[in-house]
Design a protein around this nucleic acid. Structure first.
Length: 553
RNA sequence: GCGCCUGUAGCUCAGUUGGAUAGAGCAACGGACUUCUAAUCCGUAGGUCAGAGGUUCGAAUCCUCUCAGGCGUGCCA
């Protein structure tokens, strides 16, 4: 609906430009918004005030000329008003709104999908937790945001790939091996001091126990290096299996699991380093190899290969992002914890050095999650093994509630996850409020079906819905495609969560003040279409968030 | 010290490229079920958008400074 009005507006503007009344300008800036108050019309535009200065005319003069031109189109608009300093308020024929219901019913699950993204190849990399321990609550937020963003981008017409980068090599993995080996030896009565930087969580003991079941005392005979390697591989595999299971039960899907070690195996790290060298973007100094990131806006150059000859984490990461670019992604989105924000300038530098434009890479930073249980904050520390796992959260409050709660805030704001609230099945809990709306509609449809009624467009006069609560609900339903597009293009998937709340509110309000099934056959038929369309939109939006839409509660 | 994020009603938070009288939920108070799910709805009350300047027709939104909280600032990942 909104895009139709925008087209109308742009047509009118280009006519005024052709007539010489307005100077040439970018018509893309001409957009319509939903006014704050229904009295200001169905849509409004501030374009007259925006171009007034360029046209060297007063905003109201521009607005009045535009008003005249727009009034030629009486098919859609029944009134156009100039208000305040130069707003143009557009009033649609009310019956046009009810036509949106036809579109929703016709498109079904596809309502909300658009071709905005035009099939552009986008990659979203998220979670990407080291396989050194189970996913914790912070990863949960990244998983919920990432997966919802992937689904949002797909709905907005992008060709999206979801990827998990597995850091299956390096110091942390070695630490993991050492930690497991220490626990393994403990099991066999050999006491030794636990590695200082080791992982102290109980899951390490469990893995050591499994290892002992498979290998018996075999590792005691091995040399240290070999034993650590065995432990590392065994542990990484076990932990990765757990991570995949957790993500799967969190309804999070990945198209590809990309392992860091494959970058070495396929010589991609070496190739990337050589690429930088041939471009004269790296140099040796103080026994280390440096990358001239400062030439691309970073505050100082960064080390690629340390004095001891080993590579930093940054080196394979450059190779990894080079690989993403080589795979043809036009837009690369990395979702990171906000504690990595210092890493952004150097990654941007790397992207620029690889010859890609600044807009093709975006690091979406997710702020910290803290947890409240029994009214008190819960302390967490990964290395000390004190953390709340994603698994515990899913088991305790359920996948749907957890996913919604992680999406209740903008990414760049810290999130307090209140377990007590999440477990409440009451009006304080928005998930139940939304799911309840869906279940209520299903119940109405079921009751209708029992008396032989079902929502159908044929012979149904939707124009009966051009008033009051019916119209209010339709307006909100009509906005869904726009919400999806804006959430995708601005990388703000939380908007889907807030939109759902709006739909549920509008429905509950409607439900309490109006009857769907009544003696009035024509109205009943129309309202069955209305609630059926409402159910569809709620289900579609919930699907984007990876949340179930229950038929009864 | 420097950098990033945040500061909006008692609490938790929205606020679409700068737009019209800043919005929800919870908590408080008062109402609505013989009628499709009361896990719901309606109403009342609640604000110096942290503070101070600036930019302009117009600022919660953009710029500068100050204050407060969080996170970074490694040849860790």
């Amino acid at each position: 609906m909104k895009d139709k009005v925008e087209t109308l507006l742009r047509t009118a503007l280009s006519r005024l430009i052709a007539e010489g009344f307005l100077p040439e300008f970018d018509l893309g800036t001409a957009s319509v918004t939903t006014p704050p108050n229904k009295e200001f019309g169905d849509f409004a535009t501030n374009i007259a005030m925006v171009v007034a200065k360029k046209a060297k005319k007063s905003p109201r003069d521009v607005a009045q000329a535009l008003q005249k031109t727009l009034m030629d189109n009486t098919d859609m608009l029944h009134r156009v008003e100039v208000a305040g300093p130069g707003f143009i308020n557009l009033y649609l024929h009310p019956f046009l709104w009810s036509e949106v219901l036809r579109e929703i019913v016709a498109k079904g699950r596809d309502f909300g999908r658009t071709d905005f993204g035009a099939g552009r190849k986008v990659q979203v990399e998220f979670v990407s937790a080291n396989p050194t321990g189970p996913l914790h609550i912070g990863h949960g937020r990244g998983a919920a945001v990432g997966d919802t963003l992937v689904r949002t981008l797909a709905a907005a017409g992008f060709d999206v790939q979801a990827e998990y980068y597995i850091n299956d090599i390096g110091n942390q993995m070695n630490n993991l091996g050492l930690s497991v080996l220490a626990r393994y030896r403990e099991l066999h009565g050999e006491s030794e001091p636990f590695p200082q930087t080791g992982y102290k969580g109980d899951y390490i003991r469990d893995i050591a126990g499994d290892l002992a079941r498979v290998h018996g005392k075999g590792l005691l005979q091995m040399g240290q290096e070999e034993a650590v390697a065995v432990c590392r591989e065994f542990a990484a595999e076990a932990i990765m299996r757990g991570i995949r299971e957790d993500l799967s039960s969190f309804n999070v899907r990945f198209d590809r699991w990309f392992s860091e070690s494959s970058l070495y195996r396929d010589h991609k790290v070496q190739n990337a380093l050589e690429y930088l060298k041939t471009k004269d973007l790296s140099y040796e100094d103080d026994g280390a190899l440096w990358f001239r990131t400062s030439a691309f806006g970073d505050e100082k150059d960064r080390v690629l290969r340390k004095q001891d000859g080993s590579l930093t984490y940054f080196a394979p990461d450059i190779a990894y992002h080079k690989d993403k670019l080589d795979r043809g992604f036009e837009w690369i989105i990395d979702i990171w914890g906000a504690d990595h924000h210092g890493y952004v300038p150097r990654m941007k530098a790397a992207i620029a050095a690889l010859g890609a434009g600044p807009d093709c890479f975006h690091a979406l930073l997710i702020q910290l999650v803290s947890l409240i249980r029994d009214g008190r904050p819960v302390q967490m520390s990964t290395r000390a093994g004190e953390f709340v796992t994603l698994r515990e959260i899913i088991d305790e409050v359920g996948k749907d509630v957890a996913r919604y709660f992680f999406m209740m805030r903008r990414c760049d704001a810290q999130l307090v996850f209140d377990l007590d609230l999440a477990k409440k099945k009451s009006d304080e809990n928005p998930v139940f409020y939304i799911q309840y709306a869906h279940a209520r509609i299903c119940s109405i449809l079921k009751n209708a079906a029992e008396t032989g009624l079902s929502p159908t467009l044929e012979g149904t006069d939707l124009h009966l819905l051009a008033l009051g609560d019916d119209l209010d609900l339709i307006r909100i339903l009509a906005g869904f495609p726009d919400i999806v597009v804006s959430a995708a293009s601005d990388l703000e998937p939380h908007r889907i969560a807030f939109y759902l709340l709006d739909v549920a509110t509008a429905f509950h309000r409607f439900y309490n003040r109006n009857r769907v099934i009544s003696d009035d056959q024509a109205q009943t038929a129309a309202r069955l279409v209305l609630v059926s369309a409402t159910r569809q939109v709620i289900a579609n939006a919930l699907a984007i968030m990876g949340i179930d839409a229950p038929e009864s509660m």
